[in-house]
Write a protein that binds this DNA or RNA. Sequence first.
DNA 1: CTGTTAGCGCTTTCAT
DNA 2: ATGAAAGCGCTAACAG
Lengths: 345, 345
Amino acid sequence: MNIREVARLAKVSTATVSRTINGSDKVTPETKERVQRAIEELKFYPNTWARALGSGRSSLYGLIISDITNPFFPELVKSFEDIAVQHGQDVLVANTNYDPARIELCVTRMLQRKVDGVAIMTSEMDARLITEFQSREIPLVFLDTGKAEALTSNIVVDYAAGVDAAVEHIVNLGHTKIAFISGPMNLRSARVRREAFAGCLERRGIGAGLTEEGNHQVDGGHQAMARMLERKERPTAVLASNDMTAIGALGAIHERGLRVPEDISIVGFDDIQISAFTQPALTTVRLSRDEIARVAFRALYSIRQDGGKGAEYAVRPTLVVRKSTGPAPRQRANGKRVEPDVVRV
Amino acid sequence: MNIREVARLAKVSTATVSRTINGSDKVTPETKERVQRAIEELKFYPNTWARALGSGRSSLYGLIISDITNPFFPELVKSFEDIAVQHGQDVLVANTNYDPARIELCVTRMLQRKVDGVAIMTSEMDARLITEFQSREIPLVFLDTGKAEALTSNIVVDYAAGVDAAVEHIVNLGHTKIAFISGPMNLRSARVRREAFAGCLERRGIGAGLTEEGNHQVDGGHQAMARMLERKERPTAVLASNDMTAIGALGAIHERGLRVPEDISIVGFDDIQISAFTQPALTTVRLSRDEIARVAFRALYSIRQDGGKGAEYAVRPTLVVRKSTGPAPRQRANGKRVEPDVVRV
DNA sequence: CTGTTAGCGCTTTCAT
DNA sequence: ATGAAAGCGCTAACAG
């Protein structure tokens, strides 16, 4: 089943069939009509690979993420796919799993499939690999990595603003001992978040907060929080580098018989779906995946039109206040925690 | 940059280049060596579309799922991708979003991309669409839908065994009033699970349990559980159709001031990642996504080798006991709940 | 073992 | 407005 059979049935040339498929305006309505019918009758679907070969455009975008298993990404993938499909494009999703060999493989796959552009939504992509794309004139868009230049755009996330909103909320509740549970410090994305936290405290003249390192997973958050609770100067509020970490922290606090937010307030980052349903519901800084996906696609899509010029796009996180934050507990002069007056059952 | 340039640099024909790329054994090691060097030097990546056109194989598999945002699927996608990549294949993932129009679009995309096979991991796929694949001789594998026939295999999940293990566990803990929160009954996958539950109770001679309908999401589970708690005959144990539902139920129970598992035991289904970290950690029936992905890929991969014969593959869920299940609370003669002797703080 | 060559299915000039 | 024909980059007979 191919374009020739359609042409034969419609009694036109293959060129005319091709034109009607591609919505050329140089085809008489009657001819077009006839071709359409032939297509329907034969249930003909043009072979995308052949089209790509002929036209030089694959109608395929690459989407490189670190780990689809991280709840941050599925929504990103979904939104990106939605938009792409609306524009008649397909998406090749590739997980790097933070593994250098795997990252290289992802790039190779994209190159071989001759994608029309790649959204690189992981921070761990080294310069050499990026060059591979650029030397082949493949449009690129980064999530807060790299800079805007020829054929490549960058989405800048205003982490500072997000963290600042969270800290302001916490400070307004009377907290002064604010701690942070970071992601794995070998990841750029985790370092960026931690620096935003440190910078924020500094700007507000609050002493450098305690920090523990997690792994951006629930178990790491759990362990980091447990370590934090061992300290003599226990924080009254904890910001986590992402929601998974915050959820782990929640568990560690409960295990110690402490309560959120009465004893300790917790703020997450990302606002993954489950965060609205934890016990208590998590106050968090929302980073809209839908917005990122939308911007990323638009960036890629418009690079060609704008003659290859890349651009910077800004995305601002927003604070979502739920139930895991509350007034700072009262303190004794010696800094020890006051036992609550009423034991709640 | 194409195979001809490589051929020229290596001073061989394009055929020889093609052969070395494809690992043919009919090339002298020296020649192979020379070609390899040329490939490296030019940073040549074969154009997959051209290969597909020439060979008739696209090295692309389709993976149709209902909704990547449902935590059940990311792991499935990841495992499937891992295996595919190991075999030099790529994966085109498509979300149906349970939307008939979208489902049709997914099928079209697969057809146009000329995928080598499709794993259909959603239950909502009508017969007409399936015919589209079969008439084009595209291997198919279903997750517990359809039957094994020419070119199509089926993965059979033994839901009955999974539910039975859960019920046995619950019964051994002394529970007799066992309820079920189902998924949306318009979905086949949800109906299958509910029937497994009903069948199980019947086989054990336990009276038909209460049932409420959820939506396989957290909020639906929450609402369904809330409705259940209104009833005068409150269940002491609840099975949920999936973990999301169970997590919602957990929240509803806590809101009522009741405790899990002291007052009510909860069992989920699927064992998504987060379930190990809920408060309390969820007892659940694990349906291994990794295993499903593995089997699905193997099924697709072997259909061609086995001369187009499809097969049935069985997958058994296993019970994972954590902290959300415990002994049934003691009852008064009138059926009212006995207050616990000790209040735990 | 290697080269020659005819496609694969579609797009795209270039004629008409 | 339509058709003829030349590719697009690669594979796979078929020769040698």
